[in-house]
Design a protein around this nucleic acid. Structure first.
Lengths: 163, 163
DNA sequence: GATGGTATTGAAAATCATTATTAATAGTAA
DNA sequence: TTACTATTAATAATGATTTTCAATACCATC
Protein backbone atom coordinates (compact mmCIF):
# COMPACT_ATOMS: atom_id res chain seq x y z
CA UNK A 1 0.00 0.00 0.00
CA UNK A 2 1.92 3.01 -1.20
CA UNK A 3 1.26 6.60 -2.12
CA UNK A 4 3.29 8.41 -4.69
CA UNK A 5 3.32 11.68 -6.54
CA UNK A 6 2.85 11.62 -10.27
CA UNK A 7 4.45 14.22 -12.49
CA UNK A 8 1.63 14.09 -15.01
CA UNK A 9 -1.45 15.41 -13.32
CA UNK A 10 -4.89 14.62 -14.69
CA UNK A 11 -6.55 17.68 -16.08
CA UNK A 12 -9.97 17.60 -14.50
CA UNK A 13 -11.23 20.57 -12.58
CA UNK A 14 -14.77 20.32 -11.25
CA UNK A 15 -15.28 17.27 -9.11
CA UNK A 16 -19.02 17.09 -8.77
CA UNK A 17 -20.03 13.44 -8.93
CA UNK A 18 -23.08 12.89 -11.12
CA UNK A 19 -25.88 10.68 -9.80
CA UNK A 20 -25.49 7.12 -11.04
CA UNK A 21 -28.96 6.82 -12.48
CA UNK A 22 -31.12 8.18 -15.24
CA UNK A 23 -32.28 11.27 -13.38
CA UNK A 24 -31.13 13.34 -16.35
CA UNK A 25 -33.29 11.40 -18.76
CA UNK A 26 -35.91 14.11 -19.13
CA UNK A 27 -33.64 17.10 -18.80
CA UNK A 28 -33.58 18.99 -22.12
CA UNK A 29 -30.33 19.40 -23.98
CA UNK A 30 -30.38 23.16 -23.53
CA UNK A 31 -30.52 22.86 -19.80
CA UNK A 32 -27.58 20.49 -19.73
CA UNK A 33 -25.48 22.82 -21.83
CA UNK A 34 -26.27 25.70 -19.51
CA UNK A 35 -25.45 23.51 -16.54
CA UNK A 36 -22.02 23.07 -18.04
CA UNK A 37 -21.66 26.84 -17.96
CA UNK A 38 -21.67 27.06 -21.74
CA UNK A 39 -23.65 28.96 -24.31
CA UNK A 40 -26.36 27.12 -26.19
CA UNK A 41 -25.31 26.83 -29.82
CA UNK A 42 -26.71 24.89 -32.76
CA UNK A 43 -23.56 22.80 -32.91
CA UNK A 44 -23.73 21.81 -29.27
CA UNK A 45 -27.43 20.98 -29.51
CA UNK A 46 -26.77 18.77 -32.49
CA UNK A 47 -23.81 17.01 -30.91
CA UNK A 48 -25.59 16.49 -27.62
CA UNK A 49 -28.64 15.06 -29.35
CA UNK A 50 -26.51 12.46 -31.07
CA UNK A 51 -24.49 11.70 -27.97
CA UNK A 52 -27.68 11.06 -26.01
CA UNK A 53 -29.73 9.29 -28.64
CA UNK A 54 -27.19 7.90 -31.09
CA UNK A 55 -24.93 4.87 -30.96
CA UNK A 56 -23.37 3.78 -27.70
CA UNK A 57 -19.61 3.43 -27.14
CA UNK A 58 -18.80 5.93 -29.86
CA UNK A 59 -15.56 7.59 -30.84
CA UNK A 60 -15.17 11.31 -31.43
CA UNK A 61 -14.72 10.49 -35.09
CA UNK A 62 -17.99 8.56 -35.23
CA UNK A 63 -19.90 11.40 -33.61
CA UNK A 64 -18.31 13.79 -36.05
CA UNK A 65 -19.47 11.71 -38.98
CA UNK A 66 -23.08 11.54 -37.80
CA UNK A 67 -23.04 15.24 -36.96
CA UNK A 68 -21.83 16.27 -40.40
CA UNK A 69 -24.56 14.21 -42.04
CA UNK A 70 -27.05 16.61 -40.51
CA UNK A 71 -24.92 19.72 -40.69
CA UNK A 72 -21.83 19.44 -42.91
CA UNK A 73 -20.43 22.69 -41.60
CA UNK A 74 -19.68 21.51 -38.08
CA UNK A 75 -15.97 21.21 -37.46
CA UNK A 76 -13.84 18.51 -35.96
CA UNK A 77 -12.53 20.64 -33.18
CA UNK A 78 -16.00 21.58 -32.03
CA UNK A 79 -16.90 17.96 -31.47
CA UNK A 80 -13.69 17.32 -29.54
CA UNK A 81 -14.02 20.47 -27.48
CA UNK A 82 -17.56 19.72 -26.47
CA UNK A 83 -16.91 16.05 -25.74
CA UNK A 84 -14.07 17.14 -23.51
CA UNK A 85 -16.33 19.49 -21.56
CA UNK A 86 -18.93 16.75 -21.21
CA UNK A 87 -16.39 14.24 -19.97
CA UNK A 88 -14.73 16.67 -17.56
CA UNK A 89 -18.08 17.06 -15.86
CA UNK A 90 -18.76 13.33 -16.14
CA UNK A 91 -21.77 13.68 -18.40
CA UNK A 92 -19.99 11.29 -20.70
CA UNK A 93 -17.54 8.58 -19.72
CA UNK A 94 -14.30 8.23 -21.61
CA UNK A 95 -12.53 4.89 -21.94
CA UNK A 96 -9.18 4.42 -23.63
CA UNK A 97 -7.61 1.10 -24.37
CA UNK A 98 -4.60 0.07 -26.38
CA UNK A 99 -3.61 2.71 -28.86
CA UNK A 100 -7.16 3.14 -30.05
CA UNK A 101 -9.13 6.35 -30.20
CA UNK A 102 -11.01 7.07 -26.99
CA UNK A 103 -14.54 5.78 -26.75
CA UNK A 104 -17.30 7.70 -25.02
CA UNK A 105 -20.77 7.03 -23.78
CA UNK A 106 -23.54 9.04 -22.19
CA UNK A 107 -23.01 8.55 -18.48
CA UNK A 108 -25.91 10.42 -16.92
CA UNK A 109 -28.08 7.35 -17.12
CA UNK A 110 -28.08 4.12 -15.21
CA UNK A 111 -24.50 3.35 -14.27
CA UNK A 112 -22.84 0.23 -15.60
CA UNK A 113 -19.46 -1.26 -16.40
CA UNK A 114 -18.15 -3.31 -19.31
CA UNK A 115 -17.14 -6.85 -20.10
CA UNK A 116 -15.26 -6.90 -23.39
CA UNK A 117 -14.16 -9.80 -25.58
CA UNK A 118 -10.60 -9.11 -26.71
CA UNK A 119 -11.02 -11.31 -29.75
CA UNK A 120 -14.28 -10.27 -31.41
CA UNK A 121 -14.76 -6.96 -29.63
CA UNK A 122 -18.25 -7.67 -28.35
CA UNK A 123 -19.24 -5.68 -25.28
CA UNK A 124 -21.56 -6.71 -22.49
CA UNK A 125 -22.77 -4.04 -20.09
CA UNK A 126 -23.33 -5.06 -16.50
CA UNK A 127 -24.09 -3.51 -13.17
CA UNK A 128 -23.14 -4.82 -9.76
CA UNK A 129 -24.12 -2.93 -6.66
CA UNK A 130 -21.88 -5.03 -4.41
CA UNK A 131 -18.81 -3.92 -6.32
CA UNK A 132 -19.96 -0.31 -6.21
CA UNK A 133 -20.36 -0.54 -2.45
CA UNK A 134 -16.96 -2.13 -1.99
CA UNK A 135 -15.39 0.65 -4.02
CA UNK A 136 -16.89 3.25 -1.72
CA UNK A 137 -15.61 1.35 1.29
CA UNK A 138 -12.10 1.25 -0.13
CA UNK A 139 -12.18 4.97 -0.88
CA UNK A 140 -13.42 5.73 2.63
CA UNK A 141 -10.70 3.63 4.14
CA UNK A 142 -8.09 5.80 2.40
CA UNK A 143 -9.80 9.10 3.05
CA UNK A 144 -10.81 9.60 -0.60
CA UNK A 145 -14.09 10.98 -1.87
CA UNK A 146 -14.88 9.16 -5.13
CA UNK A 147 -16.02 11.03 -8.20
CA UNK A 148 -15.94 8.23 -10.74
CA UNK A 149 -14.27 4.99 -11.69
CA UNK A 150 -13.42 2.74 -14.56
CA UNK A 151 -14.06 -0.98 -14.36
CA UNK A 152 -13.39 -2.88 -17.55
CA UNK A 153 -13.23 -6.67 -17.62
CA UNK A 154 -11.44 -8.32 -20.54
CA UNK A 155 -11.55 -11.90 -21.69
CA UNK A 156 -12.91 -14.29 -24.26
CA UNK A 157 -16.63 -14.60 -24.84
CA UNK A 158 -18.24 -18.02 -25.06
CA UNK A 159 -18.15 -18.11 -28.84
CA UNK A 160 -14.52 -17.08 -29.12
CA UNK A 161 -13.46 -19.72 -26.61
CA UNK A 162 -14.50 -22.29 -29.25
CA UNK A 163 -12.39 -20.59 -31.93
CA UNK B 1 -27.75 -5.67 -20.95
CA UNK B 2 -26.72 -5.49 -24.57
CA UNK B 3 -24.07 -6.97 -26.82
CA UNK B 4 -22.66 -5.10 -29.74
CA UNK B 5 -19.94 -5.42 -32.31
CA UNK B 6 -17.15 -2.88 -32.26
CA UNK B 7 -15.38 -1.85 -35.42
CA UNK B 8 -12.11 -1.27 -33.59
CA UNK B 9 -10.88 -4.62 -32.40
CA UNK B 10 -8.27 -4.80 -29.68
CA UNK B 11 -5.01 -6.10 -31.02
CA UNK B 12 -4.09 -8.75 -28.52
CA UNK B 13 -3.34 -12.25 -29.70
CA UNK B 14 -2.36 -14.66 -26.94
CA UNK B 15 -4.93 -14.83 -24.20
CA UNK B 16 -3.04 -16.64 -21.49
CA UNK B 17 -3.99 -15.08 -18.16
CA UNK B 18 -0.96 -14.54 -15.94
CA UNK B 19 -1.20 -15.68 -12.32
CA UNK B 20 -2.18 -12.79 -10.06
CA UNK B 21 0.72 -13.17 -7.66
CA UNK B 22 4.47 -12.85 -7.53
CA UNK B 23 5.22 -16.29 -8.89
CA UNK B 24 7.46 -14.67 -11.50
CA UNK B 25 9.55 -12.93 -8.86
CA UNK B 26 12.50 -15.27 -9.20
CA UNK B 27 12.23 -15.97 -12.90
CA UNK B 28 15.28 -14.50 -14.67
CA UNK B 29 14.83 -11.81 -17.30
CA UNK B 30 16.18 -14.07 -20.03
CA UNK B 31 13.58 -16.70 -19.37
CA UNK B 32 10.78 -14.16 -19.53
CA UNK B 33 12.00 -12.82 -22.85
CA UNK B 34 12.12 -16.34 -24.27
CA UNK B 35 8.65 -17.00 -22.90
CA UNK B 36 7.48 -14.07 -24.98
CA UNK B 37 8.84 -15.87 -28.02
CA UNK B 38 11.54 -13.26 -28.53
CA UNK B 39 15.28 -13.31 -28.87
CA UNK B 40 17.35 -12.27 -25.90
CA UNK B 41 19.08 -9.02 -26.72
CA UNK B 42 21.11 -6.58 -24.64
CA UNK B 43 18.45 -3.92 -25.14
CA UNK B 44 15.63 -6.12 -23.95
CA UNK B 45 17.60 -7.26 -20.92
CA UNK B 46 18.31 -3.66 -20.00
CA UNK B 47 14.74 -2.53 -20.49
CA UNK B 48 13.30 -5.48 -18.61
CA UNK B 49 15.65 -4.94 -15.69
CA UNK B 50 14.44 -1.37 -15.32
CA UNK B 51 10.81 -2.30 -15.81
CA UNK B 52 11.06 -4.88 -13.03
CA UNK B 53 13.30 -3.02 -10.60
CA UNK B 54 12.84 0.63 -11.47
CA UNK B 55 10.09 3.11 -10.68
CA UNK B 56 6.47 2.03 -10.61
CA UNK B 57 3.73 3.53 -12.80
CA UNK B 58 6.21 4.63 -15.43
CA UNK B 59 5.72 6.05 -18.90
CA UNK B 60 7.54 4.78 -21.98
CA UNK B 61 9.43 8.07 -21.97
CA UNK B 62 10.61 7.58 -18.39
CA UNK B 63 11.85 4.09 -19.13
CA UNK B 64 13.63 5.40 -22.19
CA UNK B 65 15.42 8.02 -20.14
CA UNK B 66 16.66 5.56 -17.55
CA UNK B 67 17.66 3.09 -20.23
CA UNK B 68 19.74 5.62 -22.14
CA UNK B 69 21.61 6.56 -18.97
CA UNK B 70 23.07 3.06 -18.99
CA UNK B 71 23.25 2.64 -22.74
CA UNK B 72 22.85 5.83 -24.78
CA UNK B 73 22.51 3.90 -28.00
CA UNK B 74 19.13 2.31 -27.26
CA UNK B 75 16.41 3.76 -29.42
CA UNK B 76 12.98 5.07 -28.66
CA UNK B 77 11.24 2.58 -30.87
CA UNK B 78 12.90 -0.36 -29.15
CA UNK B 79 11.47 0.67 -25.81
CA UNK B 80 8.00 1.11 -27.28
CA UNK B 81 8.16 -2.13 -29.22
CA UNK B 82 9.21 -4.16 -26.23
CA UNK B 83 6.73 -2.53 -23.85
CA UNK B 84 4.00 -3.39 -26.31
CA UNK B 85 5.04 -7.02 -26.41
CA UNK B 86 5.14 -7.13 -22.63
CA UNK B 87 1.72 -5.62 -22.30
CA UNK B 88 0.15 -7.80 -24.99
CA UNK B 89 1.14 -10.81 -22.91
CA UNK B 90 0.09 -9.07 -19.70
CA UNK B 91 3.56 -8.99 -18.19
CA UNK B 92 3.02 -5.28 -17.80
CA UNK B 93 -0.27 -3.51 -17.31
CA UNK B 94 -1.02 -0.46 -19.39
CA UNK B 95 -3.33 2.27 -18.16
CA UNK B 96 -4.30 5.26 -20.27
CA UNK B 97 -6.25 8.16 -18.93
CA UNK B 98 -7.10 11.53 -20.34
CA UNK B 99 -4.77 12.50 -23.14
CA UNK B 100 -1.71 11.56 -21.17
CA UNK B 101 1.02 9.17 -22.18
CA UNK B 102 0.24 5.60 -21.20
CA UNK B 103 1.54 4.42 -17.85
CA UNK B 104 2.80 0.92 -17.31
CA UNK B 105 3.70 -1.28 -14.39
CA UNK B 106 5.13 -4.72 -13.89
CA UNK B 107 2.09 -6.94 -13.53
CA UNK B 108 3.53 -10.36 -12.79
CA UNK B 109 3.60 -9.61 -9.10
CA UNK B 110 0.89 -9.35 -6.49
CA UNK B 111 -2.20 -8.03 -8.20
CA UNK B 112 -3.66 -4.71 -7.16
CA UNK B 113 -5.78 -1.85 -8.44
CA UNK B 114 -5.48 1.92 -8.13
CA UNK B 115 -7.14 4.77 -6.31
CA UNK B 116 -6.04 8.05 -7.88
CA UNK B 117 -6.51 11.63 -6.74
CA UNK B 118 -7.54 13.68 -9.76
CA UNK B 119 -6.21 16.87 -8.19
CA UNK B 120 -2.72 16.08 -6.93
CA UNK B 121 -2.15 12.85 -8.82
CA UNK B 122 -1.30 10.73 -5.78
CA UNK B 123 -1.88 7.03 -6.28
CA UNK B 124 -2.88 4.46 -3.67
CA UNK B 125 -2.58 0.79 -4.55
CA UNK B 126 -5.13 -1.55 -3.07
CA UNK B 127 -6.25 -5.12 -3.34
CA UNK B 128 -9.69 -6.49 -2.66
CA UNK B 129 -10.38 -10.16 -3.05
CA UNK B 130 -14.14 -9.71 -2.80
CA UNK B 131 -14.15 -7.51 -5.87
CA UNK B 132 -11.94 -9.99 -7.72
CA UNK B 133 -14.35 -12.79 -6.89
CA UNK B 134 -17.37 -10.79 -7.97
CA UNK B 135 -15.69 -10.05 -11.28
CA UNK B 136 -15.21 -13.75 -11.92
CA UNK B 137 -18.85 -14.38 -11.08
CA UNK B 138 -19.98 -11.73 -13.52
CA UNK B 139 -17.78 -13.15 -16.27
CA UNK B 140 -19.07 -16.66 -15.61
CA UNK B 141 -22.64 -15.46 -15.77
CA UNK B 142 -22.02 -14.14 -19.30
CA UNK B 143 -19.97 -17.09 -20.47
CA UNK B 144 -16.70 -15.15 -20.54
CA UNK B 145 -13.30 -16.40 -19.48
CA UNK B 146 -11.43 -13.43 -17.96
CA UNK B 147 -7.86 -12.66 -18.87
CA UNK B 148 -7.42 -9.31 -17.16
CA UNK B 149 -9.21 -6.21 -16.02
CA UNK B 150 -8.76 -2.56 -15.22
CA UNK B 151 -10.21 -1.07 -12.08
CA UNK B 152 -9.30 2.54 -11.46
CA UNK B 153 -11.04 4.61 -8.83
CA UNK B 154 -10.85 8.40 -9.11
CA UNK B 155 -11.63 11.05 -6.57
CA UNK B 156 -10.15 13.56 -4.17
CA UNK B 157 -7.70 12.48 -1.47
CA UNK B 158 -8.16 13.71 2.07
CA UNK B 159 -5.71 16.57 1.68
CA UNK B 160 -7.18 17.85 -1.55
CA UNK B 161 -10.69 17.84 -0.07
CA UNK B 162 -9.46 20.63 2.22
CA UNK B 163 -8.09 22.63 -0.72
C1' DG C 1 34.47 -21.40 -32.66
C1' DA C 2 32.85 -19.88 -37.39
C1' DT C 3 28.75 -19.24 -40.46
C1' DG C 4 24.35 -18.05 -42.34
C1' DG C 5 19.56 -17.09 -41.95
C1' DT C 6 16.48 -14.25 -39.63
C1' DA C 7 14.83 -11.35 -35.90
C1' DT C 8 16.09 -7.05 -34.04
C1' DT C 9 17.86 -2.64 -33.98
C1' DG C 10 18.45 2.76 -34.34
C1' DA C 11 17.23 6.68 -36.75
C1' DA C 12 14.20 9.12 -39.02
C1' DA C 13 9.96 9.65 -41.18
C1' DA C 14 5.09 8.70 -40.94
C1' DT C 15 0.70 8.33 -38.57
C1' DC C 16 -3.04 9.68 -36.18
C1' DA C 17 -5.72 11.33 -32.41
C1' DT C 18 -6.17 15.41 -30.16
C1' DT C 19 -5.31 20.49 -29.25
C1' DA C 20 -4.15 25.30 -30.21
C1' DT C 21 -4.59 29.33 -33.20
C1' DT C 22 -7.07 32.87 -35.45
C1' DA C 23 -10.09 35.67 -37.87
C1' DA C 24 -14.96 35.53 -38.58
C1' DT C 25 -19.57 34.67 -36.61
C1' DA C 26 -23.37 33.81 -33.48
C1' DG C 27 -25.50 34.02 -28.64
C1' DT C 28 -27.20 36.83 -25.34
C1' DA C 29 -27.78 40.51 -21.93
C1' DA C 30 -29.29 45.09 -21.81
C1' DT D 1 -31.02 46.52 -31.96
C1' DT D 2 -26.59 46.97 -30.02
C1' DA D 3 -22.40 45.60 -28.17
C1' DC D 4 -19.76 42.45 -25.91
C1' DT D 5 -17.88 37.97 -25.67
C1' DA D 6 -17.97 33.11 -26.31
C1' DT D 7 -17.90 30.05 -29.99
C1' DT D 8 -16.88 28.48 -34.38
C1' DA D 9 -14.54 26.35 -38.80
C1' DA D 10 -10.47 25.64 -40.90
C1' DT D 11 -6.06 24.69 -40.53
C1' DA D 12 -1.73 24.20 -38.49
C1' DA D 13 0.57 22.33 -34.62
C1' DT D 14 1.47 18.94 -31.19
C1' DG D 15 2.94 14.82 -29.22
C1' DA D 16 2.69 10.05 -28.40
C1' DT D 17 3.22 5.99 -30.76
C1' DT D 18 4.27 3.17 -35.03
C1' DT D 19 6.36 2.06 -39.27
C1' DT D 20 10.13 1.77 -42.47
C1' DC D 21 14.49 0.17 -43.85
C1' DA D 22 19.23 -0.75 -44.20
C1' DA D 23 22.66 -2.31 -40.89
C1' DT D 24 23.55 -5.43 -37.09
C1' DA D 25 23.19 -8.95 -33.48
C1' DC D 26 21.32 -13.42 -32.03
C1' DC D 27 21.73 -18.32 -32.18
C1' DA D 28 21.01 -22.96 -34.32
C1' DT D 29 23.90 -25.57 -36.95
C1' DC D 30 27.92 -26.88 -38.58
Amino acid sequence: METEQSSYLPVSQEQKALPKNDSYKNVPDKKIIRELGLKVTQQRLLILDIVRNGPNHFTAQEIYEVVTEKNPDVGFATVYRFLKKLSEQHFVTEVRMGGMPARYEWAAKKHHDHLTCTRCGSIVEFENQKIEDLQEQIADRHGFRLTHHILELYGLCGECQNQ
